[in-house]
Amino acid sequence: MTAIAVTGHLNLTEPTVPLVRAELRRLLAGHGPGPLTGLSCLAPGADTLFAEEVLAAGGRLVAVLPSTRYRQSFAAGPRADLDRLLAAAAEVLVLPRPAPDDAAYQAANAELLRRADLVVAVWDGRPGNGRGGTADMVAAAGRAGVPVQVVWPAGAARAA
């Protein structure tokens, strides 16, 4: 079984979404034969796209939620996506942290890394905004010896 975790930007531009989705689809199609498990925190943006593509590929989705109040931190649209993906997940792990803060995101990243054979990073390669973000997860994966595959197609951009 191949277990692939995702990390990535929340703020992808609208034209970037189909570019990233297509790259994720190609990447996941190349990780067969055999069962596929996708590990995601189901955040808006890259995490959601990855989870949708894992399910579309017939994979098993494992949701790792950073805190008990994670869902409340989402706006209405992303909350509906979160609920839909949680309902489709084969496993949901909610970390026992009260608030979705940097420490909770770092703990979620550690759980993803503990379970992953590979990390897919939907990442523009720029430094991060703090602990628990995409750049931090890529660095943590390197320290843990978990390979990272960066997905950032030509023409991709982050929203301001």
Rank of each mutant, 00 (worst) to 15 (best):
M1W: 09
T2D: 08
A3T: 05
A3L: 03
A3S: 14
A3M: 01
A5C: 11
A5T: 13
V6P: 14
T7G: 08
H9M: 12
L10C: 11
L10I: 15
L10T: 15
P15L: 14
V17A: 12
L19S: 11
V20G: 12
R21F: 11
R21G: 10
R25Y: 07
R26G: 07
A29D: 06
G30W: 11
G32R: 15
P35G: 15
L36G: 01
L36T: 02
T37H: 01
L39P: 02
L39T: 03
L42E: 03
A43G: 06
A43W: 10
D47Q: 11
T48W: 06
L55Q: 03
A56G: 09
A57Y: 08
G58W: 14
R60M: 08
V62C: 00
V62N: 01
A63V: 05
L65V: 05
T68P: 02
Q72S: 14
Q72A: 15
R79N: 05
A80Q: 14
D83R: 01
R84T: 12
R84Q: 12
L85H: 01
L85D: 02
L86N: 00
A88W: 00
E91D: 06
V94S: 01
V94F: 00
P100C: 11
D102A: 15
A103R: 14
Q106D: 07
A107L: 08
A108C: 13
A110H: 12
L113T: 09
R114G: 02
R115K: 11
A116T: 06
A116Y: 08
D117Y: 05
V120H: 07
V120T: 07
W123I: 11
R126I: 01
R126M: 04
G128E: 04
G128H: 04
G130Q: 02
R131I: 03
G133F: 12
T134K: 08
A135L: 03
D136I: 05
M137P: 03
M137K: 02
V138F: 08
A139H: 13
A140W: 09
G142R: 13
G142A: 09
R143Y: 04
R143M: 04
V146K: 01
V146T: 15
P147A: 05
P147M: 07
V148A: 10
Q149H: 14
P153E: 07
P153W: 02
G155R: 13
A156R: 05
A156W: 05
A157W: 07
R158A: 10
R158Y: 09
A159V: 06
